[in-house]
């Protein structure tokens, strides 16, 4: 429904022929599911073909374009934006926010939004300019390769955040001389939680287990 809504302004080009308007609307209400940030690229290509539809009948080609692009774009977008970029900037933003700095939210917005807005806008324009070949713009970003780099960046960010946490606890509660011991305790807690999750335990179960442990320790 979202795709049909986005493409509605094109109806003005179709005159008052009810049959062609109905066919146009039904065509764009067919199942369509892709990554939201890459849907602009599909939309641009479809608009290009629809605009040319007045001269030749591209109806089946338009449907084929949507069906052939939505799967790969969903896979690329989910892996890059949701699987790599969002965790990386989310971790950086959360680590800064946990320290009490108001820069945390801004880090997330400034590192994430310009890129996704640019890909949305430029993807739409390139899709419109190149039609079927609009995919070359998305390919030129090589998002799967960027995603691999970002996964390494995420591990680095997490290691820094964990070390930072150990140092923070040592400084606040026990003095600098205890820092190596507390840091090793933090590392152990992270690794044990990770291994428990790898064995199927949910983060909530681990959190409540640790809460029970803390309560037992403090009685």
């Amino acid at each position: 429904m979202g795709f049909a809504f986005a493409i509605l302004p094109l109806i003005q080009r179709m005159g008052k022929d009810e049959k062609s308007i109905s066919s146009f609307l039904v065509r764009h209400l067919e199942y369509f599911n892709t990554h939201p940030y890459l849907s602009g690229a599909v939309l641009g290509s479809v608009i290009r073909l629809e605009a040319a539809n007045g001269h030749h009948d591209h109806t089946s080609e338009i449907s084929r374009l949507k069906k052939s692009l939505m799967g790969p774009y969903a896979a690329i977008g989910d892996s890059f934006f949701w699987g790599s970029l969002r965790p990386l900037v989310g971790i950086a933003a959360a680590a800064i926010a946990y320290q009490g700095s108001v820069w945390g939210p801004f880090v997330l917005l400034l590192l994430f939004d310009p890129l996704q807005i640019w890909i949305r806008l430029k993807g739409f324009l390139e899709g419109y300019r190149q039609g079927w070949q609009g995919i070359t713009y998305i390919q030129s970003w090589n998002l799967p390769r960027l995603a691999r780099f970002m996964r390494w960046g995420t591990v680095f960010c997490l290691a820094v955040a964990a070390a930072w946490l150990g140092q923070g606890i040592a400084n606040a509660y026990s003095g600098i001389w205890m820092q190596p011991l507390i840091s090793i305790a933090v590392l152990t807690a992270v690794v044990l939680s990770f291994l428990a999750m790898e064995r199927g335990l949910s983060p909530l179960a681990i959190l409540y287990g640790m809460t029970a442990g803390s309560l037992a320790l403090m009685i």
Binding site: G83, P87, I91, A94, R151, W152, T154, V155, F156, L158, A159, V160, A161, A162, A163, L165, S183, V186, L187, A189, V190, V191, S193, F194, L195, A196, M197, E198, P203, I206, L207, M210
Partner: peptide, 24 residues
Amino acid sequence: AVLIAVCLSTVKIRRTVPIFCALF
């Protein structure tokens, strides 16, 4: 610490734990 472990589980690279420990 638990939340860092949650994030670590999203990273799909081989030998995550040794790499994380070394960087730490």
